[in-house]
């Protein structure tokens, strides 16, 4: 007689459900450590910021958590804060536009090269992308400094003395330098995905080169334009390192102002409310992006 190894009972719907539940439990357990970690060290801190933004600064520079109010948000209407806010938005906007104008033709150029050339060109974009941000901004401090290479060059060219360092121009320069790769890479990804035969089809249908760009390439690469703009605009708005190194006293930006509120002025509620505003801008921008059909940042 042959030995029966086991006595399988009939499979019941219960069994299937149990198996599915076990699988789901496994996934949950795997996610759990990260879930807990982020809950503790990300979500909780975020809630604390919100709480602080409604708190009151006391006479000793400390913060009273009792007696909630909108004082800190009201202060955002102060002319000092408002100027800083507008200046930050303005500089971030200029930075974004300059990056877009430089990066679009560049990304298109890369996307239309042979694969070997294309990869090489991308590698040389990745290097600054990965390089230390602080150091890259510092390099401009050296270049633009007193008697630095830039002023020597402008003297040789007979342009006279140039004073760029510690002006908004230097800040925008530093921001563009720092964030240009963030514009190039999503634009490249978007353009590279487009079937270039569509450009041929539009030319076949009597579009000029410019019209093909306007009507076909640009609309199809819009997800890249939006992603790149968000990736440049949001960090520019909150930039702290660049204005500290390249900007002057008169170019305080949102990021620096927030830091000052915490490290020197000790007005934590105002700092917290501003951080919250910054966060809200970022969330809104991301939502817009996903609404417009973008999928990856």
């Amino acid at each position: 007689m042959t030995q029966v190894l086991s006595h399988p009972e009939e499979v019941t719907p219960e069994f299937e459900k149990d198996a599915a539940r076990a699988q789901s439990r496994r996934g949950f357990l795997m996610a759990l450590p990260t879930f807990v970690y982020l809950g503790l060290f990300f979500v909780l801190p975020f809630l604390i910021v919100i709480v602080y933004s409604f708190a009151t600064r006391n006479r000793f520079g400390g913060t009273d958590l009792s007696g909630w109010n909108f004082e800190a948000y009201r202060k955002l209407g102060d002319s000092v804060v408002r100027d800083i806010l507008f200046r930050s938005i303005w500089l971030a906007l200029i930075t974004t536009i300059i990056c877009l104008v430089l990066a679009y033709p560049f990304a298109y150029f890369i996307a239309t090269r042979r694969p070997a050339v294309r990869n090489l060109m991308l590698v040389f974009v990745m290097i600054p992308f990965w390089s230390n941000f602080l150091v890259r901004n510092y390099a401009w401090r050296v270049l633009l400094g007193n008697d630095g290479p830039v002023s020597q060059l402008s003297e040789v060219l007979g342009l006279g003395e140039t004073r760029v360092l510690f002006t908004p121009v230097a800040v925008v320069l530093g921001l563009v330098y720092g964030f240009l790769p963030f514009m190039i890479l999503p634009l490249y990804a978007a353009i590279e995905r487009i079937d270039l035969r569509l450009m041929e089809a539009s030319r076949d249908l009597y579009a000029s080169g410019w019209q093909s760009f306007r009507r076909v390439l640009l609309p199809l690469s819009m997800p890249g334009v939006i992603a790149g703009s968000i990736l440049v605009f949001v960090p520019s708005l909150g930039a702290y390192v660049t204005p500290e190194i390249l900007g002057g006293a008169k170019t305080t930006l949102l990021g620096s102002y927030i830091v000052t509120q915490f490290l020197t002025a000790r007005n934590w509620p105002v700092g917290a409310s501003l951080s919250f505003v910054l966060m809200a801008v970022m969330l809104a921008a991301t939502l817009v992006y996903f609404r417009k059909g973008g999928r990856t940042l």
């Binding site: 079937d195 035969r197 569509l198 041929e200 089809a201 076909v216 199809l220």
Partner: peptide, 9 residues
């Protein structure tokens, strides 16, 4: 065109 190349947008 071979694969039609219709403008998707």
């Amino acid at each position: 065109f071979q694969n039609y190349a219709l403008f998707p947008h």
